[in-house]
């Protein structure tokens, strides 16, 4: 793996995990450009993608060169959650992914912002952004869940399809030692239950991990579509070794 300053130890591992989450989700949201269901939503999705990309750049820069890390690592070296790499699917899938992730990220950053660890300054800024991402996802969950018959069916299917990736959200991340992961999970479940019920739906049942153990993404085990996503993301940078852009 190139570009990683290992002297910082566990902070590096945590920065990579959080940075990769933001980087990869930002990329997926960027794929919506020109395809959103309504123009106002083009602007909203891009706002969220830009916030996340900004977070990713700060976090990756804590570890090494942001571009080397983003464009020259192999798939197995990425530490992001499997949830964030899942393809956009229809708008309901994108909203379900946003809901699961942004509630988690908001609660986690709020906790990090209260502490005095190396991530506190970033979290203090990012928590405002993630509050907005969370609100966006909640508003759309309500509208899709309690909108038309079709939207309800699609929203329910999306929540169910992505449910198996949510167990990983609460696997302790090396370097974020002060975080009470069990309490975080409780808050997440309570928040999710509340919004999903207000949307006239119920939380999916069934296992919250897929074929891999929870925490797989954090160990560099990803899903198939991720490799293709990286191929697209990295190809130009890799085609011109050493070039500046």
């Amino acid at each position: 793996m190139s570009g990683i300053d290992t002297s910082a130890g566990t902070t590096t591992a945590a920065a990579l995990a959080l940075g990769d989450d933001a980087l990869i989700l930002s990329h997926r949201l960027g794929e919506w450009a020109g395809h959103a269901p309504v123009l106002e939503e083009e602007v909203a999705l891009a706002n969220i993608a830009l916030d996340l990309l900004g977070q990713a750049r700060i976090l990756l820069s804590m570890v090494g060169d942001e571009d080397e890390l983003a464009f020259l690592r192999e798939e197995r070296s990425f530490r992001n959650l499997q949830l964030v790499e899942q393809p956009n699917g229809d708008f309901a899938h994108t909203i379900a992914r946003q809901l699961y992730f942004s509630v988690h990220q908001h609660e986690l950053y709020a906790e990090l912002a209260r502490g005095d660890g190396p991530f506190a300054p970033l979290a203090a800024k990012a928590v405002k952004e993630t509050a907005y991402h969370r609100d966006h996802a909640e508003q759309w969950t309500l509208r899709l869940g309690d909108g038309t018959e079709e939207s309800r069916t699609r929203m329910r299917a999306a929540l169910t399809a992505l449910w198996k990736f949510t167990g990983e959200l609460f696997q302790p991340v090396e370097g974020l030692d002060g975080v009470d992961w069990a309490a975080l999970e409780e808050r997440w479940l309570a928040a999710l239950t509340d919004v999903v019920e207000r949307a006239g739906l119920t939380l999916p049942e069934g296992p919250r991990t897929g074929a891999w153990a929870a925490g797989a993404g954090r160990q560099g085990l990803h899903t198939e579509s991720f490799g293709r996503m990286l191929a697209e993301m990295q190809h130009l940078h890799r085609s011109h070794p050493g070039a500046s852009w």
């Binding site: 980087l23 990309l53 900004g54 750049r57 571009d67 464009f71 993301m233 130009l236 852009w245």
Partner: peptide, 14 residues
């Protein structure tokens, strides 16, 4: 957007 060769360029383009 999905192929921008640096994160800075990607942010600008988005």
């Amino acid at each position: 957007i999905t192929r921008a060769p640096s994160l800075r360029r990607k942010a600008i383009l988005m």
